[in-house]
């Protein structure tokens, strides 16, 4: 059986909010590392990979690996019944038909218990190769969100150009064109507001803004986002949490 207790229900709520517009039916793969998921969107353009590490739960008990087939719209409905500050316990049997979600308030005088019906989801898992990226840009997640939301007003796609001078996001559409350039800067007082660029070679790639705007729903999970790019490979957008991560992969657009 699985028993996993999370100090803050808000963490799972934010994770689900971040991915539920991209993927609908998913498996939570529970193993010794923690609770993981990997799923592609219907068009096979974007992939989400998430891990809530077992260390992030206290306790984390698992007798054997199990996959919990979940409809995220249904899970969202149940998670709405939890306060962000509630303690959340997930429980499931070894061959589960349902997932139990128990919410307790911090004062320990309210306990809510919900059962979510599980589904059989036949999910294809992709092998994501270890990649040495040519450029890794870490920046405030709110800044990345603002840039994507601004540029999508002008165009469907954005060209990201990373060089040692900085990172330039540019787009061009029917009404005109626009760009935002961020220079590398180190904010000593507030490291989360720094923009850092690690570069082995300059990179220029074009991506669909619709997906990037969607990924930015994970901004609530982390104040910092890391964009990893190499020419002609999918972009990696990572939101790191205290004990886990949400990663998005997006295939580039090619040709003009």
């Amino acid at each position: 059986m699985l028993e996993a207790r999370l100090e803050q229900a808000g963490v799972l709520k934010k994770v689900v909010d971040a991915i539920r517009d991209l993927v609908q039916d998913i498996n939570f793969d529970c193993n010794d590392s923690g609770i993981a998921l990997q799923a592609m969107d219907n068009s096979h353009v974007a992939l989400v990979s998430m891990l809530l590490k077992s260390e992030g739960f206290s306790p984390y008990r698992l007798d054997r690996n199990i996959a919990l087939g979940i409809n995220l719209t249904s899970l969202t409905k149940v998670l709405r019944c939890a306060q962000n500050e509630d303690i959340l316990t997930l429980k499931a049997e070894d061959t589960p038909d349902t997932l139990s979600l128990i919410f307790e308030n911090a004062e320990n005088d309210r306990i809510s218990e919900y059962e979510l019906k599980l589904m059989d989801i036949d999910q294809e898992h992709l092998g994501i190769p270890e990649t040495e990226y040519a450029a890794a840009i870490s920046m405030p997640s709110a800044e990345f969100q603002r840039i994507c939301r601004d540029l999508i007003q002008l165009s469907d796609s954005v060209t990201i150009e990373a060089s040692k001078e900085g990172v330039k996001f540019s787009c061009s559409g029917d009404i005109g064109s626009g760009s935002v350039t961020l220079r590398q800067q180190n904010n000593v007082d507030k490291p989360d507001l720094s923009t850092k660029i690690e570069l082995t070679e300059p990179v220029t790639l074009t991506f669909s803004l619709k997906y990037l705007v969607n990924f930015c729903k994970a901004s609530a999970l982390s104040s910092v986002v890391t964009l990893s790019l190499s020419n002609e490979v999918p972009l990696l957008v990572e939101y790191a949490m205290g004990s886990g991560f949400v990663r998005f992969y997006l295939a580039p657009k090619i040709g003009e």
Partner: peptide, 14 residues
């Protein structure tokens, strides 16, 4: 316009 690539051309099925 640029063509949207599929992830399947980069990541193999496991």
């Amino acid at each position: 316009p640029a063509d949207q690539e599929s992830l399947l051309s980069y990541f193999g099925k496991r």
